[in-house]
């Protein structure tokens, strides 16, 4: 009995998190809160008009844009298909180029450190360039048209795809790779037999995802002269031809939704 009493008296209740962690988390929380408050203050200062004019403007805009001019569907169908083709070609090329890059940027497969770091760095630089900037550069180099748009999309999607897929490769089960090596397979056979089957579903899913992004991006790229429906939309807006512009927007909206739906369904089936 005395023993039990003693142990009760000595009972200690340790905090769930160590004090050090608590302090760190609190500091981080207050710093982030501070940044929020600061940026809120600054953006408020810049927003001179506020929301007051927005509602009135909305009605004028609505009046101008509606009803959409259904007559132009025939004329814009071509450029719209061009935009989709742009995305398809760019995604395909990027998907093919990604394979060697992703393998080289995966720490577990590329054990030669300098090669791994070089590939990683190149991919990181690639990813920091916004797609719009890429398009402007390529339009400057090759002139207005689809080709610079496709190039911009390839480089842009390569950055995302190679990064995501190299991370998938790094998460793979290494045991089968060891087994293939132990049975005398060379590097390519090891990759093809033990790595590819493990990565393929994620790979396909990510390619489809990047394809969705590319469809949307290719519309925007048209604004800077990279061909397709964006170019037409930009022109119509420039001519203040709002009913035509509205029709284009509605059409893009419909196409993007359909493609995203199909792609999402496909990706669900894959994983």
């Amino acid at each position: 009995m005395t023993n039990e009493n003693n142990s009760l008296a000595e009972k200690k209740t340790p905090p769930i998190y160590p004090v050090k962690t608590k302090v760190q988390v609190s500091i981080i929380f207050f710093v982030i809160l501070g940044i929020y408050l600061f940026s809120m203050f600054w953006t408020q200062k810049e927003m001179v008009g506020g929301f007051s004019g927005a509602f009135e403007n909305m009605f004028t805009v609505m009046e101008k844009f509606f009803p959409p001019n259904f007559g132009v569907i025939g004329a814009i169908w071509g450029p719209l298909v061009e935009t989709i083709q742009m995305a398809i070609i760019a995604t395909t090329i990027a998907a093919i180029l990604t394979v060697p890059l992703a393998v080289l940027a995966a720490r577990n497969v590329t054990t030669f450190k300098p090669l791994y770091y070089t590939t990683r760095t190149v991919l990181n630089i690639l990813r920091t360039i916004p797609d719009l900037v890429l398009a402007v550069i390529f339009v400057g180099l090759f002139g207005i048209g689809l080709f610079p748009g496709i190039l911009a999309l390839v480089v842009f999607s390569l950055g995302i795809l190679a990064k995501l897929i190299s991370e998938t490769i790094e998460a793979v089960d290494m045991n089968p790779l060891e087994a293939m090596r132990a049975s005398g397979g060379n590097v390519y056979q090891v990759i093809w037999y033990a790595l590819v089957p493990q990565v393929l579903p994620q790979f396909t899913s990510l390619v489809l995802y990047v394809f969705e992004i590319n469809i949307r991006a290719s519309v925007v790229l048209g604004f800077v002269g990279a061909g397709g429906i964006g170019l037409i939309l930009n022109q119509q807006l420039g001519f203040y031809n709002y009913p035509n512009a509205m029709m284009i927007i509605v059409l893009i909206f419909a196409v993007v939704i359909i493609i995203e739906y199909i792609s999402t369904k496909l990706r669900e089936a894959l994983i």
Partner: peptide, 15 residues
């Protein structure tokens, strides 16, 4: 390695 086969604890099959 072609003349030395190996069997592993975790079977190491491609699942």
């Amino acid at each position: 390695r072609t003349k030395v086969g190996m069997i592993f604890q975790n079977y190491n099959l491609v699942k």
